[in-house]
Computed example of a mutant assay.
Amino acid sequence: MEKATQVFWDRGYAGTSTDDLRNAMGIGRQSMYNAFGDKRQLYLEVLAKYQAKSVETHLRRLNEQPSAREGIRAMLKGLAVEDDRVRAMGCFGVGATGEFGITDPELSGMSANSRALLGERLVAKVREGQSAGDIAPHLDAERAAAFVILTMTGLQVAARAGANVQSMHAMADFAVDLLRVG
């Protein structure tokens, strides 16, 4: 599964052939079909696992920090992976959205569920920050959370386009500073 994830993440769905998957996974064609069904089913399975792990990682970074703003900062900066090759791959989930848009209801639903889970926690975190005096009280918590998710998407696309760690961190800091009081 991990090898299939890497191939799909790097090449996208359309750019990946069944032979690419078989070769990367080291299995025969029939074994692949018996274990995973067709290419689409394998794609859906690896994307679902990737998204679940990704959201879990984002939430962990968000919740580990002592303040709401620092949690958001840690989450955004965490997108700037030190390994140039890995960072340049961007986000598999964002890549899937870019490749399919809303043309595939099942994939759109998976993406929407991940965003909703992260969005709900971000709204709560913004409200916590507002109550603690860490985030400007005049901000609409839902819009602020949507802004953070939009910033995440932008950072992930920038990574895919070759952004370095320093520029990604600078943009993360800029976005987080927009949430501060005063």
Rank of each mutant, 00 (worst) to 15 (best):
residue 89 M to I: 03
residue 19 D to V: 03
residue 109 G to S: 14
residue 34 N to K: 11
residue 11 R to H: 14
residue 85 R to I: 08
residue 121 R to N: 15
residue 25 M to L: 11
residue 18 T to R: 09
residue 159 A to D: 10
residue 37 G to Y: 09
residue 14 A to Y: 05
residue 111 S to K: 07
residue 101 G to C: 12
residue 15 G to D: 09
residue 161 A to I: 00
residue 73 R to F: 03
residue 8 F to H: 04
residue 154 G to C: 13
residue 135 I to Y: 02
residue 69 R to V: 10
residue 153 T to I: 10
residue 73 R to G: 02
residue 116 A to E: 08
residue 156 Q to P: 01
residue 60 R to S: 13
residue 130 Q to I: 02
residue 34 N to P: 00
residue 105 P to H: 14
residue 133 G to V: 05
residue 62 L to F: 07
residue 12 G to Y: 06
residue 26 G to N: 09
residue 33 Y to N: 12
residue 179 L to W: 00
residue 128 E to V: 00
residue 116 A to H: 02
residue 134 D to L: 08
residue 151 T to G: 05
residue 9 W to D: 11
residue 111 S to E: 11
residue 3 K to H: 07
residue 69 R to M: 04
residue 134 D to R: 10
residue 125 K to C: 14
residue 170 A to F: 02
residue 29 R to S: 13
residue 58 H to L: 11
residue 40 R to V: 10
residue 91 C to D: 15
residue 36 F to W: 14
residue 167 S to R: 12
residue 150 L to R: 12
residue 100 F to T: 08
residue 160 R to V: 03
residue 104 D to L: 07
residue 80 A to R: 03
residue 94 V to K: 03
residue 135 I to M: 05
residue 157 V to H: 12
residue 67 S to Y: 00
residue 98 G to S: 06
residue 61 R to Q: 08
residue 126 V to T: 01
residue 105 P to W: 10
residue 166 Q to L: 08
residue 120 E to F: 03
residue 1 M to P: 03
residue 120 E to R: 10
residue 37 G to S: 14
residue 26 G to M: 13
residue 84 D to I: 01
residue 28 G to N: 05
residue 24 A to L: 06
residue 177 D to R: 12
residue 170 A to D: 11
residue 39 K to A: 10
residue 176 V to Q: 06
residue 109 G to H: 10
residue 81 V to P: 02
residue 80 A to H: 05
residue 5 T to Y: 06
residue 101 G to W: 07
residue 63 N to M: 11
residue 103 T to G: 11
residue 39 K to I: 14
residue 136 A to V: 01
residue 4 A to Q: 01
residue 44 L to M: 09
residue 97 T to Q: 10
residue 171 M to G: 02
residue 138 H to V: 05
residue 26 G to A: 12
residue 73 R to E: 12
residue 10 D to E: 15
residue 14 A to I: 03
residue 130 Q to T: 09
residue 30 Q to K: 07
residue 66 P to F: 05
residue 119 G to W: 08
residue 158 A to P: 01
residue 171 M to W: 01
residue 71 G to D: 05
residue 35 A to Q: 14
residue 66 P to E: 12
residue 44 L to N: 08
residue 173 D to I: 06
residue 133 G to W: 02
residue 108 S to E: 14
residue 93 G to H: 07
residue 129 G to C: 04
residue 76 L to K: 07
residue 50 Y to I: 04
residue 82 E to C: 03
residue 104 D to P: 03
residue 155 L to G: 04
residue 168 M to K: 02
residue 88 A to D: 05
residue 146 A to H: 06
residue 74 A to I: 05
residue 96 A to G: 04
residue 103 T to H: 04
residue 155 L to P: 02
residue 104 D to C: 01
residue 76 L to N: 09
residue 50 Y to T: 06
residue 124 A to P: 02
residue 135 I to F: 04
residue 2 E to I: 07
residue 61 R to K: 10
residue 35 A to M: 11
residue 45 E to F: 01
residue 150 L to D: 15
residue 42 L to Y: 06
residue 85 R to S: 07
residue 23 N to K: 11
residue 111 S to V: 05
residue 22 R to N: 14
residue 109 G to M: 13
residue 91 C to Q: 13
residue 78 G to N: 01
residue 44 L to K: 03
residue 147 F to S: 15
residue 112 A to G: 09
residue 106 E to D: 15
residue 168 M to Q: 09
residue 57 T to Q: 15
residue 36 F to T: 14
residue 83 D to P: 00
residue 177 D to A: 12
residue 84 D to C: 00
residue 52 A to K: 12
residue 129 G to N: 06
residue 127 R to G: 09
residue 23 N to D: 07
residue 105 P to C: 13
